[in-house]
């Protein structure tokens, strides 16, 4: 075994010792194109190395730019490449945009996303519950005394402090999503200790502005986006 290893090593050493000068010589030959050096150091004569005279460079005049000057053609080729980049980015943008638009709500969902309610049918002091995007929405036509009560409450000390003016667009119309902020039950109107809403599931009391006053719920009843496009109607959504 050791003898075999020894011979192998010896062969390797002799091989490198023998090869290296040749490799160096061929390198030199590539650099200098000198024939004599190759033939003197190498044991192998290439039949393809030519007669050693200097290379004649062929003429590229046919391909040269006739007008002279580099800037014109350079600007032109940059223009072509740039235009291709611009058009390709347009196409890429359109493709990505179409895929993203694909994820948006479809037309039939969007068509049901808005609900129009006729306010003339709601007498003063009454609640109306309508369905909007699968959730109940409370619309309360508040009386003068209720508005006064809602505005006079000391809201700074409440659990979720919010003045009444932040919770309605017109004082007499209170529009809220009728989902208890605790665990999502639907509160009962005109009930509870504060004259507003009362959640029967876990006993949360909301006042006449829909603010949480007592019970486990952490937040006031949510106010959806709505507006009054004309007198007597409200559009929720």
């Amino acid at each position: 075994m050791p003898a075999l290893a020894h011979t192998t090593r010896a062969i390797a050493r002799s091989w490198t010792a023998h090869q290296l000068p040749v490799a160096r010589a061929s390198c030199a030959a590539l650099q200098t194109r000198s024939l004599s050096e190759v033939s003197s150091t190498s044991s192998f004569d290439s039949p393809f190395k030519g007669d050693g005279k200097s290379t004649k460079i062929p003429s590229f005049a046919a391909y040269r730019n006739k007008a002279g000057g580099e800037t014109g053609p350079r600007v032109f080729s940059y223009f072509m490449v740039g235009t291709m980049g611009a058009l390709a980015s347009l196409g890429a943008k359109a493709t990505v945009q179409d895929f993203l638009v694909n994820m948006a709500a479809s037309a039939d969902v969007l068509a049901q996303a808005k609900v129009e309610v006729d306010l003339a049918a709601i007498p003063e002091g009454k609640n109306v519950i309508i369905k909007w995007r699968g959730k109940p929405v409370f619309i309360r036509h508040r009386t003068e005394s209720e508005i006064k009560e809602a505005e006079d409450t000391k809201w700074e000390s409440l659990r979720d402090p919010q003045p009444d003016s932040d919770r309605r667009q017109k004082p007499e119309w209170l529009v809220m999503v009728g989902v208890c902020t605790h665990l999502g039950c639907v509160p009962i109107g005109e009930a509870g200790d504060f004259g507003g809403w009362f959640c029967p599931c876990h006993g949360s009391h909301y006042d006449i502005s829909g603010r949480i006053r007592k019970g486990p719920a952490p937040l006031n009843l949510e106010v959806p986006a709505y507006d009054f496009p004309e007198e007597g109607t409200v559009v929720i959504g």
Binding site: L35, P47, G50, D51, G52, I57, F60, M80, M84, L87
Partner: peptide, 30 residues
């Protein structure tokens, strides 16, 4: 338009290869 431009750019990129000239020196025969 993109196709036409890409044809132009391909020709532009390949022009050094397409217009090169090979020089052949007859072999030196000992």
């Amino acid at each position: 338009v993109l196709f036409a431009l890409s044809v132009w750019v391909k020709r532009y990129k390949w022009s050094p290869i397409k217009t090169r000239k090979l020089v052949y020196q007859p072999p030196y025969s000992p």
